[in-house]
């Protein structure tokens, strides 16, 4: 079990906020560190019963090999694609400046 379970620091919460793209307020940093700690403490018990011999279940139904044929389907029109956009220009979605290349 991770040593930090049950205690989540304000710095951790701030880091999680950055990862999740939430511009958290000071108040939220306090509130979430307390609440997350409570919740994590309550749920951390799963680690006790999850012994190595138990396999994980990620899908409730045991399906596999579900494929689609490589056949084109109709697309949205450019107008439909952009209809909900907060900002668009030249048939494209307009976004604020990007600082970092991926």
């Amino acid at each position: 079990m991770p040593e930090t379970a049950g205690a989540i620091t304000r710095e951790q919460v701030a880091h999680l906020g950055r990862l999740a793209r939430l511009s958290l307020t000071e108040d939220e940093l306090d509130r979430y560190s307390a609440q997350l700690a409570d919740i994590v403490a309550a749920v951390a018990r799963v680690t006790e019963v999850a012994t190595p011999d138990v396999p994980a279940t990620s899908h409730p139904m045991p399906l596999q090999n579900v494929f689609r044929d490589d056949v084109p389907r109709p697309c949205l029109s450019q107008e439909q694609a952009l209809a909900g956009a907060p900002d668009a220009e030249d048939g494209r979605f307009r976004v604020p400046r990007i600082l970092d290349e991926e």
């Binding site: 799963v46 680690t47 409730p60």
Partner: peptide
């Protein structure tokens, strides 16, 4: 592993 992984095991149980 501790959280998501364990939770998926509980699912099996």
């Amino acid at each position: 592993d501790a959280y998501y992984g364990s939770a998926q095991k509980v699912r099996t149980l």
